[in-house]
Simulated scan of single mutants.
Amino acid sequence: MSLEIRDLSLSIGKRRLFQPLSLSVARGEVATIMGPSGIGKSTLLAAIAGHLDPSVTATGHMTLEGQDLAALTPETRGVGMIFQDPCLFPHLSLGDNLAFGLRASADRTARRAGIEAALETAGLAGLYEADPDTLSGGQKSRASLMRSLLAEPRALLMDEPFSALDMELRDEMRRFVFAHIRARNIPAVLVTHDPADAEAAHGPCCQLQRD
């Protein structure tokens, strides 16, 4: 499951956000994207996922497992996303939040078993019925990752998922997230401002340059 980006450029009107980007991300690898604020790092992730704003024009090529992503709808690309905000639904239990990651075809027993296993893996065993608002920042972040992985993505995109955490928790979450990406053997792209994220990822690092 390799992600290939070749000469990708994003423009708003006649203004190109950054110089053309080429990047190859192998299975189990975490590539890091860095650059100044406003250069288009989050917009780059949106382009890969297929959620690009109509005001932005993309040129270049992106493939996942050899498939041209431009030819696929967002829901068929198989690309998961994790944001700085865990985005857990406050009106649902923790387990029901994770249920959104499972395929609808799974029966109730299989769904419950899958969710319970994911919670245990994330160090959240016994918290199926927990109110998300009662969880710590690290617990919410781990739950968000497991929800994304339950959807069995072919690639994972992360938009500064550690930036709101304190230093100790940030180190813990880096290890947790990167270990699961490698265990799932999927390519991942991490947008960050923190050089320590890139160092911990041990993957290719690209610095976006203004045009």
Rank of each mutant, 00 (worst) to 15 (best):
D133E: 11
R154I: 05
M81W: 09
F89K: 07
F178C: 01
G78D: 13
D194H: 08
D211S: 12
V177K: 02
R154Y: 09
L88G: 02
G203M: 10
S93R: 06
A46L: 12
L190E: 01
S2A: 14
V79Q: 04
P74R: 15
L150D: 02
I39R: 00
P187F: 01
I115C: 02
L21E: 03
A201F: 01
R147D: 03
L52R: 05
L21A: 03
T59C: 11
A117P: 06
I12L: 15
E75H: 14
R111W: 07
T134S: 14
G78R: 10
C87P: 07
R142A: 06
L8N: 08
A104E: 15
A130R: 11
S22C: 10
G123K: 11
T121L: 15
T192I: 04
L124C: 10
C205M: 12
E199Q: 10
Q207V: 15
G28F: 06
R111Y: 09
A183E: 15
P20R: 06
E65L: 11
S11P: 07
P54R: 15
L169N: 04
A151W: 08
G123V: 09
K41F: 01
P204D: 10
C205Y: 04
S55F: 11
D197V: 01
P86M: 07
A179P: 04
M34E: 03
R111Q: 12
R6T: 12
A164T: 05
P20L: 11
I12D: 12
A31R: 02
A122E: 03
D53P: 03
R108K: 15
S11A: 15
A183H: 13
E4N: 10
Q67S: 10
F18E: 02
G50R: 10
K14C: 11
L21Y: 03
V30Q: 01
L98P: 00
H51E: 14
T134A: 15
A104P: 11
I39S: 02
A104L: 14
T134F: 11
L92K: 06
R210S: 15
I186N: 00
P161R: 04
G137M: 08
S105H: 14
I186L: 14
I5L: 12
S148A: 13
D159K: 04
S93E: 09
P132H: 04
L149P: 03
S2Y: 08
D197P: 00
R210P: 13
